[in-house]
Amino acid sequence: MVAVERQLQRSLGAWVGVSTVGGAAAIAVGRSRKDPLLRAFGLQTLLWAAADAGVLAASTRGNTPPAGRLRALLIANAAADVAYVGIGSALAARPDRVPQRLRGLGRQERRRTSDAAVRGHGLAVVVQGLALLVIDSTAAARLRPPRP
């Protein structure tokens, strides 16, 4: 159980690092090329890195549930990861379907999120969902009780 927990923390920590560096790089390249897709991809990736870092920080506090509960939590997370991939795919494939009222940056703001930016956000959600699916499902499989 402890070995699985440590590997899970290492995997998530590595993913936080990759997401942070990759997100920052995508934003920088997107700004230099004036590419809203890359900027949105980078921003979404950095937001996920921050959320994952929070999960990682909470996991290091030593309040790990028993193996059975941790496995159930990881399976639930894996199901959520599949949903993230589906939602991100829908955003990436059909950004034109996102209503204009959801694209506003504020009531006073006239700018709207472009289709390219919505597509970038969607692609980043797909990447995050797939990576977290691998991390969560691998750890859950390692916690599987032995067969009698």
Rank of each mutant, 00 (worst) to 15 (best):
L74G: 02
G62N: 02
G88T: 11
A117F: 08
G13S: 00
T60K: 15
Q7I: 00
D115M: 01
G104Y: 01
A50F: 10
G120R: 06
R61P: 02
R39A: 14
Q100N: 09
V134F: 04
R144A: 13
K34E: 14
R61K: 15
L38N: 05
V98T: 13
A80W: 07
A57N: 04
V18S: 06
A67R: 08
G104H: 12
A72I: 03
R119S: 10
G22W: 04
G22V: 04
Q108C: 03
Q44H: 10
A24V: 14
P65H: 05
A26C: 11
R94Q: 06
T113G: 02
G106P: 07
A93T: 13
S32F: 11
R97C: 00
A141N: 10
P36L: 03
A67N: 02
A140I: 05
V126G: 05
G106V: 06
L70K: 03
G106R: 04
L38W: 12
G17C: 03
G23D: 09
A28R: 10
R97P: 00
R144I: 01
A14K: 06
A131V: 14
V98F: 01
N77L: 12
S137A: 12
A26F: 11
L70Y: 00
A14F: 10
A80P: 00
R39W: 05
A117N: 09
A124F: 09
Q128V: 14
R71Q: 13
R69N: 09
Y84V: 03
M1F: 06
A67G: 01
P95Q: 02
L105Y: 15
L12R: 04
P65D: 07
Q128N: 15
L46K: 06
Q128D: 14
V125Y: 05
R31Y: 11
D115T: 03
L43Y: 11
A139R: 00
R94E: 04
V2K: 15
A67F: 01
T64S: 12
L74H: 01
A40N: 13
D96T: 11
G23V: 12
T64L: 07
A50R: 08
L47H: 03
Q44T: 15
R94T: 12
V85H: 05
D136Q: 09
V118G: 06
A139C: 00
L132G: 07
S32Y: 09
Q9K: 06
L46P: 13
P146H: 02
R33W: 10
L56G: 00
W48C: 12
Q7F: 00
V82D: 02
P95V: 01
A57W: 10
G88H: 09
A67K: 04
A124I: 13
A93F: 07
A78H: 04
I87W: 08
A51F: 12
G86S: 11
R147V: 13
V21G: 01
P146V: 03
V21I: 15
D52N: 14
D136Y: 03
V55A: 11
V18Y: 11
R119G: 01
L43H: 11
L70T: 03
R111L: 13
P36S: 10
R97L: 14
Q9N: 11
A28L: 14
R112F: 00
L46H: 08
L91Y: 11
L46C: 14
L56A: 00
V118D: 08
L91C: 07
